[in-house]
Design a binder for these strands. Structure first.
Length: 441
RNA sequence: CGGGGCAUAGCGCAGCCUGGUAGCGCAUCUGGUUUGGGACCAGAGGGUCGCAAGUUCAAAUCUUGCUGCCCCGACCA
């Protein structure tokens, strides 16, 4: 993409309504614009990041054996009346009437709908276990939206639902998701810590929140530092690995303030005690037959008896993640996106003038990178070099190729954000990028 | 919903107290000079001062009501 053809409205100044760095940065770098309190438009740059995150999440759901489908944003009130949540959910649910004065709602979550789909189509234990998920916009009419996309009313969520024949099988599904969450957040370069959680209005008794540490986080958290050292890089979905995963974490103390227990916490060595804040980026629940029972979802077990399947649900706040990642990775001078989700893989800063050598070198390099699927963003505007430097440090594309008039024919300045500039040849840069992004050719 | 604050050009703000021609910086457009860490000169465009009512000869400015937005709290992915 050439910047001269792109839509990237960068703000030099910070809008006064943004109070935390992720919100400020997302506004300044032209990722989002607010439409109403807690409701945002995603501009091209932000949209790319969002879609890339969505894909990382999707890929790992698929690896875990979950199957993607898509349910609507608007739901009928009927099924919510069946489960009893039409009244329980309260004012957070946005209720709508159509022209026939039928009661509809903008879905805040999808347990009812997925249970309906399940009960209408699955009748036998032979079809279990089953994990279904979708990535869809939700609406919760929060009392107080804040912090940009971190806590908004309309948000994109990945929600998975598991159906199993009995509790033991359901716990295995739960552990699978637990593991897939660790892998997902690992790919996003986030250190996510699972913590035992309250189950809230969704109900049930086995539940974990996945939290990343950040001073601006909304939850207070207490933990044993050693939990941060648990290795998540080489996890696989073997039965041993899945079965052991929760135990690995339960060896070390970690809790949000709701579940915090002072006595337990004080048994940790003083040096290992950590009290800080965190951002919740995922939440998983096992809730048994809460919905399958109230909504009369029945399957035949291997004795020919009708039973209610055991269910769980597993959410990841996809639209919250860009902000959470910024909170975790921005260091007051520059932003560097994780390679797995960066909006462009490499930036080319053309410091030359129309038609001069640097300009030509930039275009050639640009075309080459496009052909290699290294998705470059070329700054071909006539802005001053210094303004280009500032803009690109703000946007956070991990690598920059800087092409000015200083260097010889096959010399280019190459910078990885946060590190010193190097002078490299074209081939060296391309090999480096191919390796960084694991592109073979 | 309780408490606090804000609303003037795309963004950041001044003007309001003490009523009388709507301003500054950035951004935008035109022309020119520039070009390695947010360049310079000259010119231009852009506003029902959030909405409504009231007071007044006269309201961005004073009064009342409404709406929107932000912050703190209770609630949450």
């Amino acid at each position: 993409m050439k910047l001269s053809n792109y839509f990237l409205p960068i703000l030099k100044e910070t809008p006064s309504e943004a109070k935390i760095k992720s919100h400020q940065l997302m506004l300044r770098s032209g990722m989002i614009r607010q439409s109403a309190s807690g409701i945002y438009s995603w501009l091209p740059l932000g949209f790319k990041v969002l879609k890339n995150i969505e894909n990382v999440v999707r890929e790992e759901q698929n690896n875990a054996g979950a199957i993607e489908l898509l349910m609507p944003t608007i739901q009928s009130s009927e099924i919510w009346k069946e489960s009893g949540r039409y009244d329980d959910y309260g004012k957070e649910m946005l209720r709508i009437q159509d022209r026939h004065e039928r009661d509809l709602l903008y879905g805040p979550t999808n347990e009812e709908l997925i249970t309906q789909i399940f009960r209408d189509n699955i009748k036998s234990y032979k079809n279990l276990p089953l994990m279904l998920y979708h990535i869809q916009w939700k609406f919760r009419d929060e009392i107080r939206p804040r912090f940009g996309v971190m806590r908004c009313r309309e948000f994109l969520m990945k929600d998975t639902y598991s159906f199993d024949i009995d509790q033991a099988a359901a716990e295995l599904s739960y552990k699978k998701m637990f593991l897939s969450y660790l892998k997902t957040f690992e790919k996003l370069e986030l250190k996510a810590i699972p913590m035992k959680a309250e189950t809230g209005p969704i109900g049930g008794d086995l539940s974990h929140e996945f939290i990343i540490l950040a001073e601006t986080g909304e939850s207070e958290v207490y933990l044993d530092k050693n939990i941060l050292d648990i290795e998540t890089k080489n996890l696989d979905y073997s039965i041993e690995s899945v079965n052991g995963i929760i135990e690995k974490y339960s060896k070390f103390y970690s809790a949000t303030d709701e579940k915090h227990n002072k006595d337990d916490f004080n048994q940790i060595k003083k040096n290992d005690q950590m009290h800080t804040r965190g951002i919740e980026i995922g939440h998983i629940f096992y809730f048994g037959d809460k919905y399958s029972k109230s909504m009369n979802a029945l399957i035949n077990n291997n004795e020919g008896k009708n039973i209610n399947p055991q269910m769980g649900s597993y959410g990841i706040g996809v639209s919250r993640l860009p902000a959470a990642i910024i909170e975790a990775k921005y260091n007051d001078e520059f932003m560097k996106w994780p390679l797995s989700i960066t909006p462009f893989k490499v930036a080319i800063l053309n410091l030359g003038k129309n038609g001069d050598e640097a300009d030509q070198k930039s275009l050639e390099f640009y075309n080459l990178l496009c052909n290699l699927k290294l998705e470059p963003l070329l700054d071909d505007t006539s802005d001053s070099p210094s303004s280009k430097f500032k803009n690109f440090d703000l946007i956070g594309i991990p690598f920059q190729i800087i092409i000015g008039s200083k260097l010889k024919k096959d010399e280019y300045e190459f910078k990885e954000i946060g590190k010193d500039k190097k002078i490299l040849s074209k081939d060296e840069i391309i090999n480096f990028l191919k390796e960084a992004y694991k592109i073979d050719q």
